[in-house]
Design a protein around this nucleic acid. Sequence first.
DNA 1: AAACCGTGGTA
DNA 2: TTACCAAGGTT
Length: 344
Amino acid sequence: MWSANSFQRKVIEYYRQHGRKHLPWHGTKDPYRIWLSEIMLQQTQVARVIPYYEAFLERFPTIVDLAEASSDEVMHLWSGLGYYSRARNLHKAAKIVAKDFAGTFPQDPEEIEALPGIGRSTAGAIAAFSFDKPTAILDGNVKRVLARCYGIEGWAGKSAVLKSLWAKAEKNTPSQNTAQYNQAMMDLGAVVCTRSKPKCEQCPLAKECYALKQDMISELPGKKPKKTRPKRSVYWLVCIDNNQVLLHKRPPSGIWGGLWCFPELDQTAPIPEHYEQLSSFVHKFSHYDLEVQPLLVKKLSKTGIMEPNETDRFALNLFDKKKQAKTTAIGLPTPVSNLLASLS
DNA sequence: AAACCGTGGTA
DNA sequence: TTACCAAGGTT
């Protein structure tokens, strides 16, 4: 096994020769742009992020622009990207930076990590890429490279495994050229040391890789234990009146928090008396299946749905179905957007 | 510790 | 087709 120093040199040399250097967030040290890219890239692939990243920056060029925006418009620009708490936390953090840091992004890794939505790895990435701090990262790419290279077994969701991976990440991270090293590790994991069919013949670490030597590539890194996904069944009420569609804003926490949705009823609840069934469908989340039966409601007697209730959970929002969401800056979950499109 | 939180591509 | 999962963080 080589020294940390040798490991670093091989990884950085690989990056200098073969790494990706022209993604939209490369070539900048603007912490706002680095931060935005890191958040969007959480559990999301590069190709999918790029158009969202560019549209977001076009609308909010600076962190103060973002801080001053409405939550509906922020969610609108995140619609379809998923994991919407990222957008809510991003907006929240922008307001904190604008107010508590006079609009200047903090450089101290601990202050960065204290912002909502930024964990240890994302804080390390921002601090290294923007401010040349010697901070380590441990995203999915780095986890995969380290687990295979050093034979670190077990699922990273287990705290002991995660601790072991962090220890190796810290040990291997150089105090100089940290940004380049971190970028190189991400790139190596994303392009060469992929989950399936890694390109070991292109890997600068292949000579000493534990997983390759032991023929354990498919076993490392350890997989998350699988469990059966439950199914939930709901009605969505499609209430159209005067060319407008009734939507309500979901509460800030929970699934699709802060996004606008058709009024939703559990299938045990009483439903309107006059309706027409539209085509049902199943929306698959990572942790459960949602079976949706849309009901085109003809008459709203005895449902109470059209009345904003005491707690204001059913705020009324009528918008022009012909204009769709394109001219209406609100957040819409993908299946809501799809159903709206099918109505016009 | 383990559940929660989206979506679309891939095999 | 189903199952897995991609630059994680919060509770």
